[in-house]
């Protein structure tokens, strides 16, 4: 089935859905409608969507987007791709865990990497990174540490384990601490933070 046909079919099932074609996929204009759109996909006798194969996310600098790939194993239809966009400064998307159990793990992954909060998820916590990790590493504005420069917390740990640290490394770490800086990986010079406006 072509994307246009799927859009028209979904809108005939639920006329309040606002869908827009983006490339080969359907953008659910209001993320609140996502669960309704998926329910329509599931209940449609023409599509019989029964498998959510992938939940992923992307950072478009002006907004964050989640992308869903659906299949019908029974009718061999798919992938039917849905997108939903959300604000960058307060990203919230309704969870699909109630409709597809397979969303649980992958929504955790999207939360881990992009910080998108999936509302209604039963167990939303980090998946790949450890619990006390800070920041969302796959966002475009994530600044990672410079792993060649020791910082004050490294010095404290090394001292606790009675490991000798050369004066040069120590001086650099204490200098950073005195200036209230972190050791960041190199970034281009003139660059402001990415936008955080509405989609």
């Amino acid at each position: 089935m072509r994307t246009e046909e799927i859009r028209d079919h979904l809108q005939s099932l639920d006329s309040s859905l606002r869908l827009r074609i983006v490339l080969e996929s359907l953008l659910v204009e209001n993320p609140e409608d996502l669960a309704r759109a998926v329910r329509a996909l599931k209940s449609s006798p023409r599509l019989k969507i029964d498998f959510l194969s992938s939940v992923t996310a992307a950072d478009y600098l002006d907004f964050l987007e989640t992308v869903y790939h659906f299949y019908s194993v029974e009718l061999r239809i798919g992938p039917v791709v849905l997108r939903a966009r959300t604000r960058r400064d307060d990203p919230k998307i309704p969870s699909l865990c109630g409709l597809f159990r397979s969303a649980e793990l992958q929504e955790r992954e999207a939360y881990d990497m992009f910080g998108i909060r999936f509302e209604g998820h039963p167990d939303l916590r980090r998946l790949f990174m450890w619990d006390n990790f800070e920041g969302w590493p796959l966002r475009k504005d994530y600044v990672q540490e410079d792993s060649d420069v020791l910082e004050s917390q490294d010095l404290a740990w090394l001292e606790k384990n009675s490991i000798h640290v050369s004066q040069e490394l120590k001086t650099r770490a204490l200098d950073l601490q005195a200036r209230g800086l972190r050791a960041d990986a190199q970034r281009p010079a003139a660059e402001g933070p990415a936008n955080s406006g509405a989609p």
Binding site: W130, N132, F133, E134, G135, Q144, E145, S147, D148, V149, L150, E151, Q153, D154, W157, L158, I163, H164, V165, S166, L169, R182
Partner: peptide, 17 residues
């Protein structure tokens, strides 16, 4: 595990940049 990576970033007795 630290908030941004491993603590320490390296063991200076074994490796130095």
């Amino acid at each position: 595990f630290g908030p941004r990576g491993l603590i320490p970033k390296f063991n200076p007795e074994v490796w130095q940049p």
